[in-house]
Each structure stands twice: as C-alpha cells, then as structure tokens.
C-alpha cells in the first residue's frame, strides 16, 4: 500500500482540478486558460461572472462536500453502522420541518414572526436546530437501545414522520411558499452569496475542528464501547462532541444549500475502497477532500446539459447510488 501522504497529495490535486473544472462550467463555458489569464486581462464581464457566481458556487461545493463527507464518517463510526448517514437518521428531515415552518411564518401577517423569519440567519438557525433536535433525540434513544439496526429503523421512522408533517404544512401553504420549499429541498449550491459563505465556512470550520479533535475517540470506538472506555475515552463526552459537530455541519449545509442527499453516506465508503484503512487520522482528511470532489463533480454534471440546470439532488443520487451498489457487489459487504 502506498503511503497515506501520497493519497492525500493525489486527492488534493484532483480536488484542485475539479475546482477549476467547476468554475469553467456554467451557463457560459469559460475555458481554464481564460481563467488563468484573467488576473492579467481586462475582461470585466468575465471577472464579474467569476466573482459573483462561479467562485461562490465552487467554494460552496468545497465546503459543503467536506462537511457532508465528514458528517457521514462520524455517524458511521459512532453507530458502527455502514448505512448510517445524516439523511438516513432523519437529520435532514428535521431541518426540512423547521425550514418549512420558517418559510411559512415569513409569509404570515404577524410582524414579529416576519421579522424573525425574514433575517438572513433564520433559515440557517432553523435548519441547524431542526437537525440538532432530531440528532439529540436519536442519541437519547440510542442510550436505551444498543442494537444498531433498531436505531436505524427508528431513525427512518422518525424521518418518515417528520416528512409527513412537512407534507401537511406544505398542503396548507400558498403556492409561492411551496415552490420556495421545493427548490430548497432539491438542493442548490449556486444560491449562496459571499456573506452566507462566510457563515457557512465559520460553522463548518468549527464542525471539522471538533471532528479532528475527536480522532482518538473515533479510532477507539472501532473496537467497541467497552474497549474504548477501558482505553480512557470519555464515551458520553465524545458522543456529545460528535453529535454537536455533525449537527452543526449538516444543519448549516442544509440551511444554505438544502438537504443534499447521498454524499454523506457514499464518500466514506468510496474513500475506504481506495485507501483500505480504518484509521481516522488518514481517513478523515481524505473524506473531506473526497466529499468536496464528489460535490464539485456532481455540480459540473448539473450544468452539463446545455441551458437546463439539473437539480443537484437528482445528480448526487444518480451518481451515488450506482457507486454504492457497485461497491457492495464488489466487496460483498460494506466495511466500517
């Protein structure tokens, strides 16, 4: 096996290339050569497009992909279940519920609610709270139920229940609210401005920092709870931080980009398929870069069909599902 550092350099290079590719693709194609000439040229229009649209979108992909990949890895290790992921456990559904509520409140006649719901932070806070609530609920349940499969089933049921509440809310809402929510729920990395990206970057940095600080406990958890405990890992405390990190990251991503499916589940598996290791010191940075790569690539694909821009979630699932199926068939069983 090649050294982990080699893989890291390789993945970083691929990420950079995809970043360039991502910036090139859009409603008008800008060739990478033009991009490189830009700092020296006087093409004001191009610079404008780049600064206002292409760069924010690419940076959002980068941040969001890293956050979702990391979140998926944390969940899979915490629950010791290869099928765990933010969306499977109902986190995104929780976010959806609160976001739907906030979108509806924004259209209400009550001034104070309009004020609260109208602020640029409200969606982010609502989505973060939504996913945090669901996750805390899952953690409480997981304290009483040790069986991973049961927890997963409960997560799915929770997700179904929340989705149905969202459905009821949407049923009674006005059509413009409905459309707003539909667009949000299909996922979109192109709608963020630099101010929002700054918020996203801050929250995700905190989440990733926490994740990195938990590397030791993540590794020890691979041996099972009792072994981890006997190695001096404060289980409850570390579980709290893992919950907090995942909720922050998935919550903020869901807030600004909508519930992006599949990346969180697929990326850790894809990374482990390429680099057969379970050491989080190696896997964690690779998962961040891998998540960024996958999302940058999927976003390029949404622009690949001329003027029609495909919804991001459709592409992530279409890319993600065959990849995961192929892996399962190839490996016979998924690994943690």
């Amino acid at each position: 096996m090649a050294k982990p550092a080699t893989f890291l350099t390789l993945t970083a290079t691929v990420t950079l290339l995809l970043l360039l590719l991502n910036i090139s693709f859009g409603s008008t194609y800008i060739s990478p050569f033009e991009l490189l000439q830009l700092p020296f040229g006087r093409n004001q229009d191009l610079a404008e497009i780049l600064w206002a649209f292409r760069l924010p979108k690419a940076v959002t992909c980068l941040l969001t992909g890293a956050a979702l990949g990391t979140g998926g890895l944390l969940m899979q290790t915490l629950f010791r279940n290869p099928l765990a992921g933010p969306d499977v456990l109902g986190l995104s559904s929780g976010s959806s519920l609160l976001v739907a509520l906030v979108i509806m409140l924004g259209q209400s006649n009550i001034a104070i609610l309009q004020l609260v719901a109208g602020s640029p932070w409200s969606l982010a806070i609502a989505a973060t709270l939504g996913s945090a609530l669901v996750f805390v609920l899952m953690i409480v349940i997981s304290r009483f139920i040790k069986d991973n499969t049961s927890i997963l089933i409960i997560g799915l049921m929770l997700s179904a229940a929340t989705t149905s509440v969202v459905g009821m809310l949407l049923y009674v809402s006005k059509s413009e609210d409905l459309q707003l929510f539909m667009i949000w729920s299909l996922g979109n990395v192109g709608g963020t401005n630099w101010k929002e990206i700054l918020v996203l970057a801050c929250v995700i940095s905190i989440g990733i920092s926490i994740a990195i600080s938990q590397v030791k406990s993540l590794n020890a958890r691979l041996l099972g709870d009792t072994y981890a405990q006997s190695l001096g890992i404060p289980l409850a405390q570390s579980r709290f931080w893992l919950v907090a990190a995942t909720s922050l990251m998935v919550g903020s991503v869901t807030a600004f980009c909508g519930p992006i499916a599949f990346v969180g589940l697929a990326v850790p598996h894809l990374v482990k398929l390429v680099v057969p290791s379970s050491n989080h010191r190696i896997i964690l940075p690779l998962v961040m870069l891998g998540g960024a790569c996958l999302l940058l690539f999927c976003d390029v694909l949404t622009h690949a069909f001329g003027t029609t821009i495909l919804p991001l979630n459709a592409v992530t699932s279409i890319i993600g599902a065959p990849l995961v199926i192929w892996m399962v068939v190839k490996n016979k069983k998924m690994t943690l």
Partner: peptide, 19 residues
C-alpha cells in the same frame, strides 16, 4: 466481544494499547 472492523492491521490493533 469480537472486533468487527476490517481494514485494520494487527500492528494497528495492538497500537490501541498505547492509547
């Protein structure tokens, strides 16, 4: 309880003793 994780070498597993 058996350690179910794959993708881990014997050396890495014994290394957990140093945690």
């Amino acid at each position: 309880e058996r350690v179910a994780t794959t993708n881990m070498t014997v050396h890495e597993l014994v290394g957990f003793g140093r945690y």
